Simulated scan of single mutants.
Amino acid sequence: MIASRRFLPSINSLTALEAVDRLGSATAAAQDLSLTHSAVSRQLKVLEEQIGVSLFVRDGKGLKLTLAGETYAKSVREVLKNLAQASLKVKATGSRSSLNLAVLPSFGMYWLTPRLRGFYEAHPGILINQSTRVLPFDFQQDPFDAALHFGSQNWPGVNYLPLATERVMAVCAPGFAPKLPLTPEALLEMPLLHLESRPGAWEGWFAQQGLTASRLRGMLFDQFANMSEAVAAGFGAALLPQYLAEAEISRGRVVPACGDVTEADGTYYLVWPKTGDQSEALTRLIDWLKRG
Rank of each mutant, 00 (worst) to 15 (best):
Trp155Met: 09
Tyr72Glu: 00
Glu263Asn: 11
Leu47Thr: 03
Pro124Asp: 11
Tyr268Lys: 03
Ile249Arg: 14
Gly236Met: 03
Gly175His: 07
Ser228Val: 05
Ala84Met: 15
Ser250Glu: 14
Pro241His: 03
Glu229Lys: 07
Ala147Phe: 04
Leu55Tyr: 04
Glu246Thr: 12
Glu280Cys: 03
Glu229Arg: 08
Ala16Phe: 01
Thr71Trp: 12
Ser250Cys: 10
Met190Val: 04
Ser152Ala: 08
Val255Thr: 11
Ser250Met: 15
Ser75Leu: 08
Ser214Asn: 14
Val20Gly: 00
Ala28Glu: 06
Ala213Phe: 01
Gly69Cys: 07
Val261Ala: 10
Gly175Val: 01
Phe107Asn: 04
Ala173Gly: 00
Ala233Pro: 03
Met190Arg: 09
Phe119Asn: 08
Asp59Cys: 10
Trp288Thr: 02
Leu83Val: 12
Leu193Thr: 05
Asn82Ser: 13
Tyr269Phe: 09
Phe221Ile: 01
Leu161Phe: 10
Asp265Asn: 07
Leu148Arg: 15
Glu246Pro: 08
Gln153Leu: 14
Ser97Tyr: 01
Leu211Ala: 14
Leu116Lys: 08
Gln31Asp: 13
Phe7Arg: 04
Ser75Met: 11
Thr15Met: 03
Met169Asp: 03
His123Val: 11
Ala102Cys: 11
Thr267Ala: 07
Pro181Leu: 02
Ser41Glu: 09
Thr132Leu: 13
Asn154Lys: 13
Phe107Ser: 03
Tyr268Asn: 00
Thr93His: 04
Pro181Ser: 05
Ala3His: 09
Gly200Tyr: 12
Asp287Leu: 02
Asp138Met: 15
Arg217Tyr: 04
Ala16Ile: 00
Trp111Tyr: 15
